[in-house]
Amino acid sequence: MEPSKDQLLWMYAAMAKARHYEDTMARAYMEGKTPKFDIGAGPVPGEMHLAAGQEPCAAGVCVHLRAGDTVTATHRPHHVAIAKGVDLNRMTAEIYGRRDGLAGGRGGHMHLFDPAVNFACSGIIGESAGPATGAALAARLQGSDAVAVAYLGDGAANQGAFHEALNLASLWRLPVVFVIEDNAWGISVPKSRSTAVPDNSVRARGYDMPGVHVADNDTLAVFDAAGEAVARARRGEGPTLIEVQTYRYYGHFQGDPEVYRPKDEVARLKARDPIDRLRGHMLDNAGVTEAEADEALTRVRAEVDAAFEFARQSGEPAPEDALEHVFA
């Protein structure tokens, strides 16, 4: 499946937007946390998990989705939220814990929820599989051709909830796509020391569904695999499992000393950066001009910068707001 020029530009913009967002967040998060790291200090308190490097997993899948499709993501969710069209201003305000956030500042960066575009995420490992399967069942019962996509990390593929969801999705032939982002590390544990199979896509055979492995963080290969999986789901032919070999440039969390990683690993990965590779393909093979690519880059960077300014200007929640939206 060959992407159109418009699809290529959309993916490039989504990936560049996510990268600028994560790099900007990395700087904003560390404000007030130096010279001695204090996780509760600064304008963005709490843990922070960034996905720079993993952009193909988001853009290559979400380019095939519609507004009515459901996406559930992981504790490292920003790139997927951006590709699904989550309100960037309100998402950033949420991460800052401000009253204009998606949940009024209650959820933070691991618990983003935007019903306007059917997006949610959670800090619980493997949690995304069940809700996505439920959303796929709801679409089936409503007679809709909407699909659901569940994002998981490679560590989550060892959770029981993941396997339960695959079993039900296949048994009921539900329109759901499971996307495993294999960034080689489960916190600080390499995949080879936590997972019995070298490639999680082979686990699809045990649940009678197609399994696809995408190597080398290849945006175009993700686009191809996801295009077939989404189309198959819309045709009522059931679920697909896709594992993408991807990479994260930052640590498991901001402040992670990363003593477990080879010292040259990130530099080697950046030498084959997926955004640069996609740009090269667009310019050389798809009729995209430098001016068109640069315009997309300028536009999305401005959107990200505006979102951070919006968040900083948003007010703090009132103390009494803590009692809203809770069960008595």
Rank of each mutant, 00 (worst) to 15 (best):
W172V: 03
S194T: 12
E324Q: 13
D69I: 05
D38V: 13
F162W: 11
H325C: 09
D294L: 13
G123L: 04
H109P: 02
V80C: 04
H252G: 01
C57N: 05
V212W: 06
A14R: 05
R19N: 09
D154G: 04
R90T: 05
E309A: 12
D273C: 15
Y207K: 07
E94H: 06
V212S: 01
C121A: 08
L152M: 12
S194N: 14
P77G: 13
P190E: 15
T70G: 00
D264P: 01
V304Q: 03
N217I: 08
R261L: 11
G155C: 04
D145W: 05
C62M: 13
D218P: 03
D38W: 10
Q254I: 15
K270E: 15
M91F: 07
R99D: 09
E94Y: 06
Y96A: 01
I95V: 14
A93H: 02
V259W: 12
V117E: 12
G53K: 03
P3C: 13
Y250A: 10
A169E: 03
P35R: 10
E316K: 12
L50H: 04
L8Q: 05
L278Q: 08
D145P: 00
R173T: 12
V288W: 11
Y12H: 15
Y29C: 09
S188R: 09
Y29R: 06
D114Y: 09
D276F: 11
T34C: 01
R173Q: 15
A136D: 04
L9S: 07
G85T: 05
V179R: 04
M110N: 08
M282P: 00
A51L: 08
A59N: 01
H325A: 14
S314I: 07
N217F: 09
E290A: 15
T195I: 14
G42A: 12
M209T: 02
H111F: 14
W185T: 03
P317Y: 07
A52D: 11
A196H: 02
W172S: 03
A58N: 03
A150W: 03
M25D: 05
F37W: 14
A51G: 02
V44M: 10
A73I: 00
L137E: 06
A26F: 14
V202Q: 04
Q7I: 04
A165F: 04
L65K: 10
A13P: 01
R272K: 07
R312F: 00
R232Q: 13
